[in-house]
């Protein structure tokens, strides 16, 4: 069986060096259309934002950075992203391992949950959390049926109520790469560890963790970066006291009517997020795992 598979995928691992490089015309026609599209759709908005940020009388960047509300939202967003990342990577590792070692019904249940989450929109899932968390919502009904609580719960539009929903929204992005790593790693190493008498903890630390570490990091980086741009879930579940940077930017444009400050904040958010991604990418080779 192993021999057959090796025969069935010949040369997939070999890479002939010669002739691998395409011709100039070939590269031009394949690469230029996407590059021009990126240039138009990324540089266009960035130039327009810079133009807008410098259109007011005062320096909008200074104003943005000296605004207490904005600085507070920066810290809040960073904290939020860090907590969500840590939680999703930890729970995501357990989830992926459980899919690998569980009995068939557990596997099916866990995969089903993952797929429901992947296939339904963030909007629908957020509405679901809203209905769960409303003072006399579904969660209260369940607790009441279990005899655990008699007065309405206060979760809706609080920090405590916001976190579970955000973790649930981001969890698949952490589980999927870890699951791929768990499924594809070398079983012989595990057998070797068991044969040499390593206990579960030692095996986990010496064999399992090193092989899935890279996937945990890639998933974590992606979750962290995506969490920095969170908008809908905090808006609906966190309420006005939990505004993320995205929420503040929206408020600058629609309620404070300061398009220049909003543009400056947008530039800071995009620049910061992309810079974090690029640094993480150079350090941990995140893109290579995806592409």
């Amino acid at each position: 069986m192993a021999v057959n598979e090796a025969v069935a995928t010949p040369a997939a691992t070999r890479r002939p060096r010669r002739l691998a490089d395409g011709s100039v015309a070939e590269k031009r026609w394949l690469l230029w259309p996407p590059l021009i599209f990126f240039l138009l759709t990324v540089a266009g908005p960035v130039v327009a934002l810079i133009h807008q940020a410098t259109s007011g009388e005062e320096n909008a960047f200074v104003e943005a950075l000296s605004s207490e509300v904005f600085v507070a939202s920066v810290w809040r967003t960073l904290l939020l992203a860090a907590v969500v990342t840590a939680a999703t990577v930890l729970v995501g590792t357990a989830y992926a391992l459980a899919i690998a070692v569980g009995p068939v019904w557990v596997k099916a249940l866990l995969m089903g949950g993952l797929l429901i989450s992947l296939w339904t929109s963030v909007m629908v899932r957020t509405i679901g959390w809203m209905l769960l968390e409303l003072p006399s919502g579904a969660l209260f009904w369940m607790l009441e049926k279990l005899g655990l609580r008699s007065e309405p719960i206060e979760l809706y539009q609080t920090t405590l109520g916001m976190y579970p929903a955000m973790i649930a929204v981001m969890l698949p992005f952490a589980v999927l790469p870890i699951l791929a790593a768990v499924i594809s790693f070398d079983r012989e190493q595990l057998n070797a560890a068991t044969v040499f008498g390593a206990g579960p903890l030692l095996t986990f630390g010496a064999v399992v963790l090193p092989t899935i570490r890279q996937a945990m990091i890639s998933g974590g980086v992606l979750v962290f970066v995506m969490s920095l741009g969170f908008y809908v879930t905090p808006l609906l579940l966190g309420g006005p006291s939990n505004m993320t940077m995205s929420g503040i930017i929206n408020a600058q444009l629609n309620t404070a009517n300061r398009a220049d400050v909003g543009a400056a904040m947008s530039l800071l958010l995009v620049g910061g997020t992309v810079a974090i991604y690029l640094v993480a990418d150079r350090l941990f080779k995140v893109s290579e795992r995806w592409g």
């Binding site: 992606l222 995506m226 741009g229 930017i249 690029l278």
Partner: peptide, 21 residues
């Protein structure tokens, strides 16, 4: 590779403000 993956990292609100401008 990085260039083609990085749009995943773009915060949608900030990008939407840019497109709106």
């Amino acid at each position: 590779r990085t260039l083609f993956i990085v749009p995943m990292a773009i915060p949608p609100v900030a990008y939407a403000v840019g497109l709106y401008s």
